[in-house]
Amino acid sequence: MTKPFRFGVVAPLRTDPPTWRDRVHRIADSGYSTLLVPDFPQMQPAPGPMLATVAAVTDLRVGTWVYASPLRPAWLTAWEAHSLSLVTEGRFEMGIGTGRPGIEDELRDKGMPAVPPPHERLAQMREAVRALRELDGPDRHTPVAMAVYGPKARELAAELADTVTFALGDQPRGEVERLARDFRTVGEVELALAVPVVGDNVAPHMAPPDTDPAALRAADAMTVLPDDPAAAIEEIQRRREEIGFSYFVFGADVADRFAPVVAELAGH
């Protein structure tokens, strides 16, 4: 079943708070559905206060893109997610994954007692969702977005997630189609695509700083879009038709430029 388009923006706080709030309001006024923040401890304020602020001053949905499961106990992730769902009156979406490349060094730098192997991180994700469902109870359902790649992670997402995104780099279109194929037959699962590169712009906290836009274009990677809005609209429609992606996530630096894309496609 084809899902309507919606669009999110990853908007870390990298300026003074008033400038960031001005950007948040522009994102809301441009028709984006969701404002998202990354989970980079000590590089910006914690996700909870930022997202609660956004929900208080706009009608946007808000979410984490994404919690790194090994950074905190599963019960703490679930408690914060449930709390945000409650104070935003159901506008919070919990994004969660096993951690970005290099998370092992970050955990050691922060004095974590042990670096859990990948299978334990998946278990942490499962436990966080279980604890969230328990806190939500029968009358609340906090949506869960999972960032996955390997077969065991995809299996977990098929079981538990409302939204699935793939942790992509330079994988070509055919490989991404293969990853998405099984999810197109899984009930109501929404397929999301994070696009950190638009033209030559690389979104901070969405891709490594040494990302090469030209190499991504040469590989026909799904992590890049043309910076011309008309060309982007055509390609986004193709990606939904051929692969099933209906939720697209961009970096904040291109949110204004892609406002015509959102105006043309959101909700259709």
Rank of each mutant, 00 (worst) to 15 (best):
Met125Thr: 07
Met125Glu: 08
Arg126Trp: 06
Arg126Gly: 02
Arg126Asp: 00
Glu127Lys: 11
Glu127Arg: 07
Glu127Phe: 07
Glu127Trp: 10
Glu127Gly: 08
Val129Tyr: 01
Val129Gly: 00
Arg130Asp: 14
Ala131Ser: 02
Leu132Thr: 10
Leu132Ser: 14
Arg133Tyr: 12
Arg133Glu: 13
Arg133Pro: 13
Arg133His: 13
Glu134Pro: 14
Glu134Phe: 14
Leu135Cys: 04
Leu135His: 00
Asp136Ser: 10
Asp136His: 02
Asp136Gln: 04
Gly137Thr: 05
Gly137Ser: 05
Gly137Asn: 00
Gly137Asp: 03
Pro138Leu: 15
Pro138Ile: 13
Pro138Ser: 11
Asp139Trp: 11
Asp139Asn: 15
Arg140Ile: 14
Arg140Phe: 14
Arg140Gln: 15
Arg140Gly: 12
His141Glu: 02
His141Phe: 03
Thr142Met: 01
Thr142Asn: 05
Thr142Val: 02
Thr142His: 09
Pro143Thr: 03
Pro143Asp: 01
Val144Ile: 01
Val144Ser: 03
Val144Thr: 04
Ala145Val: 06
Ala145Trp: 03
Ala145Thr: 10
Met146Asn: 05
Met146Phe: 00
Met146Ser: 02
Met146Asp: 01
Met146Arg: 00
Met146Val: 04
Met146Glu: 06
Ala147Met: 14
Val148Tyr: 03
Val148Arg: 12
Val148Pro: 13
Tyr149Asp: 03
Tyr149Met: 05
Gly150Val: 05
Gly150Arg: 08
Gly150Pro: 11
Pro151Arg: 09
Pro151Gln: 07
Pro151Glu: 11
Pro151Trp: 13
Lys152Asn: 10
Lys152Glu: 04
Lys152Ser: 14
Lys152Pro: 11
Ala153Val: 03
Ala153Ile: 06
Arg154Tyr: 01
Arg154Gln: 13
Glu155Lys: 10
Glu155His: 07
Glu155Ala: 12
Glu155Leu: 06
Leu156Asn: 11
Leu156His: 09
Ala157Tyr: 07
Ala158Gly: 15
Ala158Met: 15
Ala158Tyr: 11
Ala158Arg: 14
Glu159Asp: 15
Glu159Asn: 08
Glu159Thr: 15
Leu160Lys: 05
Leu160Phe: 11
Leu160Thr: 04
Leu160Gly: 04
Ala161Ile: 04
Ala161Arg: 10
Ala161Cys: 06
Asp162Ser: 09
Asp162Met: 05
Asp162Tyr: 08
Asp162Phe: 09
Asp162Asn: 09
